[in-house]
């Protein structure tokens, strides 16, 4: 296997682990962590895409990954704040016992 292929297989494995945890997790915190893990796998793919093309290193994907990390952190921070509020108001940290018609 070439260098890039190892990274792609690693990214696929990490993505799979994230997706699996997201599907089985009931606690919202676990779900958010799973989403974070999947995001890391995608950044890995982006960095592999940045590999040497015609000998020269492409800098753009690295800029994208940096931007992506900032966005992921902000989005997760927002999600955590929302989760704290949800737990305060409803006393629940999962969406399993969902009742939409409580009016």
């Amino acid at each position: 296997m070439s260098h890039a292929e190892v990274w792609v297989v690693a990214a696929a494995a990490v993505f799979g682990i994230g997706l699996y945890s997201l599907l089985i997790a009931a606690h919202l915190l676990r779900q958010l962590i799973a989403i974070k893990v999947m995001g890391s796998a995608i950044f890995l793919v982006l960095v592999v895409a940045a590999g040497p093309i015609d000998g020269a290193l492409d800098g753009l994907p690295k800029a994208l990954v940096l931007t992506g990390i900032v966005i992921a952190i902000s989005a997760i921070a927002f999600a955590l704040a929302l989760l704290v509020r949800l737990a305060e108001v409803t006393g629940s940290t999962s969406l399993e016992d969902d009742a939409d018609d409580d009016r």
């Binding site: 779900q31 999600a79 929302l82 989760l83 949800l86 409580d102």
Partner: peptide, 12 residues
């Protein structure tokens, strides 16, 4: 509460 739950599900 209902909006918080809906928002959380939407966000995930």
């Amino acid at each position: 509460p209902a909006a918080l739950r809906a928002g959380m599900r939407y966000l995930v």
